[in-house]
């Protein structure tokens, strides 16, 4: 579904992403991990469209997308959540989620201003889909409160709900567990597992190897802008290159020690 080929992105003299190739199959939950500065976030931005690569290509369902704007990628079915929560302040949770529907709806200013037929056709669908996404992420009690008043864990859930409202084929998640506490973390991994069962393809960028190991099918490890390992969670955690680069001297026994 998603193929990255020899992607390169440099900032000055730093090769943040240095020839990364990677392929995500439909229905797969792929983890992307690496130590700080490994190039995870840069790679994420390249796929999301907030950065453009100097070289290499990104194929999504057989289409070259590396030159498309983020909004165009959203229309193809790529939805993202941000590492630092990006909310639309002054809008309720439900309204925030409804914005996600932009990618599959079309009515424009004139149609909205004059209340033309397409407005009436699309609005109820948007609302219905948004309510569904709000329910799936457990945000129903907060649907009508200002989004900025939610606790952090719920704000992260809201980002996922907004992404789901876009009807995506591929979900890109940038450190969705960052700053969450134990209970919230468990809820998040349950939600991801459920989305996986429903057939969503996901690329999960994470710092926390324990969290990724619990949910991902396969894990790709980046270091210094290059892929240093790829495989099942168990394989990756056993890899010597990963232990040296990522964990340093900490033994990789289970998730509890990684944070």
């Amino acid at each position: 579904m998603l193929q990255l080929e020899r992607l390169v992105k440099t900032f000055g003299v730093v090769r943040a992403v240095d020839g990364v190739s990677l392929s995500v199959d439909a229905g797969e939950l792929r983890g992307l991990i690496g130590p700080n500065g490994a190039g995870k976030s840069t790679l994420f931005s390249l796929v999301a469209g907030h950065l453009r690569p100097e070289a290499g290509s990104i194929n999504f369902e057989g289409r070259r997308i590396e030159r498309l704007r983020p909004a165009a990628r959203a229309r193809l079915g790529i939805a993202i959540t941000f590492q630092t929560v990006h909310l639309f302040r002054g809008m309720t949770t439900l309204e925030n989620v409804m914005v996600g529907a932009h990618s599959w709806t079309n009515h424009e200013f004139v149609e909205a201003a004059l209340r033309l037929p397409r407005h009436f056709r699309e609005e109820p669908k948007i609302r219905e889909r948004a309510r569904g996404a709000v329910a799936r992420t457990g945000l129903e009690p907060w649907a009508d409160v200002p989004a900025e008043s939610l606790p952090l864990g719920r704000q992260r859930a809201l980002q996922i709900a907004r992404a789901l409202c876009g009807n995506p084929k591929l979900l890109l998640l940038d450190e969705p567990a960052a700053g969450l506490r134990g209970e919230e973390r468990r809820e998040l991994s349950e939600l991801l597992a459920r989305l996986c069962e429903e057939g969503f393809t996901m690329l999960l960028v994470e710092h926390d190897i324990g969290f990724v190991s619990r949910v991902a099918h396969r894990i790709t490890v980046l270091d210094m802008g290059r892929v240093i390992a790829e495989g099942s969670p168990a394989e990756v955690r056993a890899s010597e290159a990963v232990i040296v680069a990522y964990l340093g001297s900490v033994p990789a026994d289970d998730g509890a020690t990684s944070r």
Binding site: P70, A74, R75, G100, W104, R162
Partner: peptide, 10 residues
């Protein structure tokens, strides 16, 4: 409030 999140949403 957030052009980057808006564009990512389409």
């Amino acid at each position: 409030t957030s052009p980057s999140a808006a564009s990512a949403a389409g």
